[in-house]
Amino acid sequence: MGARTKARKRALDVLFEAEQRGVNVAAILEERLAHPGHQHPLPAYSQEIVRGIVDRWRELNVIIEDASTQWTLERMPAVDRNLIRIGAWEILCNDEVATAVAIDEAVELAADLSTDDSASFVNGVLGRIARDAPAIGSTSADD
């Protein structure tokens, strides 16, 4: 597993933990940074992902809901929802990651960590986001 793949997985851990505990994502991130416990320190790219998602939380959620034609965010499995957030952030906000790489990484993690149908679901939603990215970029407001 490459360094960025591991960083994405660790970012997913933070997002998932915050959701499961009902705690603000930024608070969990700061807690992990201050007290990593038995885990290795959180990679810089994990921190960048989580902070980027927190900064654009509402915007990303709207984009994801628009791209997910039959599932609301609340109905999605938590792992899928957060992998899609990571992939959407990489597609829309990180020029250093190719769109195909962002989608492939999210799909691989979904296949490893979620339901049997998750990989194809994540692929479909992120594919729609990638397809619509130019239009999204021109109409999105920076919060």
Rank of each mutant, 00 (worst) to 15 (best):
M1D: 04
M1H: 13
G2A: 05
G2C: 03
G2D: 15
R4C: 03
T5L: 11
K6S: 14
K6V: 13
R10T: 11
A11N: 05
D13M: 11
L15I: 04
F16S: 09
F16W: 11
E17K: 10
A18D: 11
E19R: 14
Q20F: 10
G22D: 10
G22C: 10
G22S: 14
G22F: 04
V23N: 04
V25W: 05
A26H: 10
A27L: 14
A27E: 15
I28Y: 06
I28P: 06
L29V: 08
L29T: 05
E31M: 12
R32V: 03
L33A: 08
A34H: 13
H38V: 10
Q39V: 07
P41Y: 00
P41T: 01
P41H: 02
L42T: 02
A44P: 10
A44L: 15
Y45E: 11
E48K: 00
V50G: 00
V50S: 00
R51V: 01
R51F: 00
G52E: 09
I53P: 03
I53H: 06
V54C: 09
W57Q: 14
W57R: 10
W57C: 06
N61Q: 04
I63P: 02
I63H: 07
E65K: 15
S68L: 08
S68I: 05
T69K: 10
Q70A: 13
R75Q: 15
M76H: 07
P77T: 15
A78T: 11
V79M: 12
V79A: 15
D80V: 11
R81L: 12
R81C: 07
L83D: 01
R85K: 01
G87F: 03
A88D: 02
A88F: 01
W89T: 00
W89Q: 01
E90F: 05
E90R: 08
C93G: 05
C93V: 02
C93K: 06
N94G: 01
N94F: 01
D95Q: 08
D95C: 04
E96G: 09
T99E: 15
T99Q: 12
A100R: 11
A100S: 14
A100I: 10
V101N: 05
A102I: 05
A102V: 03
I103F: 05
I103E: 08
I103Y: 00
E105Y: 03
E105I: 00
E105R: 00
E108Q: 13
A110W: 09
A111W: 00
D112Y: 04
S114I: 09
S114K: 09
T115C: 07
T115V: 11
D117A: 12
D117I: 12
S118A: 13
A119E: 08
F121E: 12
F121D: 09
V122M: 09
V122E: 10
V122L: 07
N123G: 08
N123K: 13
G124Y: 04
G124R: 13
V125K: 11
L126A: 04
L126G: 02
G127N: 06
A130Y: 09
D132Y: 10
A133G: 07
A133T: 03
A133K: 10
P134T: 00
A135F: 11
I136S: 05
I136R: 03
G137N: 06
G137S: 06
S138I: 15
S138P: 03
S140F: 07
